[in-house]
Design a protein around this nucleic acid. Structure first.
Lengths: 214, 214
DNA sequence: TAAAATCTACGGTATTTACCCTAATCAATT
DNA sequence: AATTGATTAGGGTAAATACCGTAGATTTTA
């Protein structure tokens, strides 16, 4: 088999450098290109051809989920392994629907990473040692349903989310946006329902995970 | 000069492995031990002797700031470089007061990291290419004033902060900690006063900036 | 030993959220 | 033309939070 060509996508240069140093030591793996956000990764694919993408989730400009979606929409896209900080339940199913080929926590070790890369490169799926892969479904399911996998929040909701995170009350937000504080409350409630949390702390925690604030 | 002996402290194994691979390529640097949280790092220092510690901030059990505080309280402690995800204004001053020797964003590159290590190992300070080091003061200032430099929150407050961030209500937190929900409210109020915010959103935003959650 | 900080707790009150519900308007899509 | 989704708004209520104060018990520091 040829060398597995890798693209690393992460907004932290030190992690890119680290992963690169780590993988360059491995026989059969070669890091050919890196990108610091989703958009860059997407653009790079027009120029470079790679077999496997190691994709971070939290990134500015275009996050890992958006990028994955965009890349997987094209035909003959590379395999994609998501590198995530935290395990989020329900996440794996969503990722599979998006067409992701692997999922790995950042507290995995070198061996698990290389395993994942080789396995995915050979066309199999890899979802961590913890995750039993019972489901799988057909490939078509990726495009047929659930159009808003990544986040599911509207622009307005996002706008309000940020203001909530900044510490404004519903009334203050209403004044700022020239809408009723009841409307703000409605948005707040809708977001909580969507994200399955039950207070502002949960909301903000979500916003952090997605890189919307901080 | 001898080799610079390094300890890496990070809760993500892949980052440890990456940094190790990266630094093992560098002449004059040797990673002798790693730890996955602050407590482990602290304990390891009883056994191993190192010159420079690369310390992450976000960690379970004991975070980087607590660990730094604990380590720097002992005499003849190693130099410590903080590795942080985000640049936080006001942070650097606090870190210097704590006795930290360097501060580096995780989106620094390999060269900056090795520069930082060598510079710090030789007794100088390194606070990133962006940060102009105007202040510095005398070494005594570290212990003489402001006992709660890092954050200003007590252990109990921090504990409660994390539970708030996890979405628990005052009542739930009270039940968890076997104290009255009024006491939880008092802690909450005191924290807000200390941090100059006026609701839970502000609190959590702070917790993010300081790396207490996520 | 005295002073300061920490953790605990409560009374009272105004404000804010959280959570039900309905519903009109507008834009986009089928 | 009809449906869906987004945004807007309100009625009503219970729960939770924010904010003011005080204060005892314990621990730490000076």
């Amino acid at each position: 088999m040829n060398e597995v060509k890798i693209m690393i996508v992460d907004d932290h240069q030190i992690i890119i450098d680290g992963l690169k140093a780590l993988l360059d030591d491995v026989e059969g793996i070669r890091v050919v290109i890196t990108a610091s956000n989703g958009r860059e990764a997407f653009d790079m694919l027009k120029i470079f051809s790679v077999d496997v993408i190691l994709m971070d989730i939290d990134m500015p400009v275009m996050d890992g989920l958006q990028a994955t979606k965009a890349i997987k929409e094209k035909k003959s896209s590379p395999f994609i392994i998501i590198l995530s900080m935290h395990l989020q339940k329900g996440m794996v199913e969503d990722l599979i629907k998006m067409g992701v080929d692997g999922y790995l926590l950042k507290n995995s070790d070198k061996e698990q990473l290389t395993n994942a890369i080789f396995q995915v490169a050979s066309g199999k799926k890899y979802f961590g040692p913890d995750v039993t892969l019972t489901l799988l479904g057909d490939d078509k399911s990726a495009k047929s349903k659930s159009p808003d996998i990544a986040i599911g929040l509207t622009d307005r909701e996002l706008e309000i989310m940020k203001l909530i995170a900044d510490g404004y009350t519903n009334k203050e937000i209403g004044d700022k946006l020239f809408i009723s504080h009841r409307t703000v409350d409605t948005h707040r409630t809708n977001m909580m329902k969507k994200l399955n949390v039950n207070n502002v702390a949960g909301l903000i925690n979500f916003a952090i995970r997605k890189g919307l604030i901080s």
